[in-house]
Design a protein around this nucleic acid. Structure first.
Lengths: 139, 139
DNA sequence: TCCGGATATTAGACAAAGTCCAGATTGCCG
DNA sequence: CGGCAATCTGGACTTTGTCTAATATCCGGA
């Protein structure tokens, strides 16, 4: 996979390719997530987008992140009871969570094997498997 | 493992064995969790404990659940962004989460193998590995 | 028994994350 | 330009959880 530049223009294309109407606010929010390639909470996204002067309302940030989620542009990572993180990396991967610092990083799923899971009932489909390794700094 | 009765008297013993002073409120909260053997949120615990007449304050419910957590009597399950579940089953196991209904059930860890996780940095220790299988009812 | 300190509990104010709504803006198409 | 649909907005609201200062309970010793 070639390294690409996450310019605002490219964001517009990315949004369109996911069937999302690329408005100014949506482009800024996508840019915040993708240019950093980091896990961000809604709060953090709002702070980034509104650094210079307030441009985007809280409601829009939440609506947009939910929209991105539905359209498969980002993933939701639930590791901290107090806030949800949004992950611009949608390729299969797991997470490493440092409980004291709150730092969250990716674990490539490529070499991780999970076996022995019991079969699901017929009327159920797997939506996703989340593997979270919680670590702590040694005393 | 023999089936046991989760009487309030047995709860007192259980608390003592975990180095917890068995007060009336703590016994009631432990009883709510262990007699049901279910995943309960703080809200649900409070509702159960206060069914007949209000007996236990919100602060005490939260304090007590946090205490149980520290003492290793229960586990915390973070699957729903809006609330934390407390799990009286502390033996190694994973979770199955039905996203539409919010129903949460256990997956015994005995036959599940997870391999290929990358090594941790030297100064880190694993606190726990959470595996959550998210399922949805077929359309 | 009574006292004193340590431990627990409480009500209610507070904080943070997220939702909701009704009105204002924007952008597009004829 | 006029109108419609989609989007955005401020702000009120809800929910989950925390904090604090005051009160209650428990227990050991004199």
């Amino acid at each position: 996979m070639t390294r690409m530049h996450y310019t605002r223009d490219n964001m517009a294309g990315l949004l369109r390719s996911h069937d999302i109407n690329p408005t100014h606010q949506r482009i800024e929010i996508a840019h915040a997530l993708f240019s950093r390639q980091e896990h961000l909470s809604a709060d953090q996204v709002m702070a980034i987008v509104n650094t210079r002067h307030s441009e985007t309302s809280k409601a829009t940030v939440y609506n947009t992140l939910k929209l991105f989620l539905e359209k498969g542009l980002v993933r939701e990572v639930i590791v901290d009871p107090s806030k949800v993180f949004f992950d611009p990396n949608t390729s299969p991967h797991h997470h490493l969570y440092e409980v004291d610092s709150g730092k969250l990083s990716d674990i490539d799923a490529e070499h991780v094997q999970i076996s022995g899971l019991p079969p699901l009932p017929d009327n159920m489909v797997t939506e996703g498997i989340d593997l979270i390794v919680r670590v702590r700094r040694k005393a």
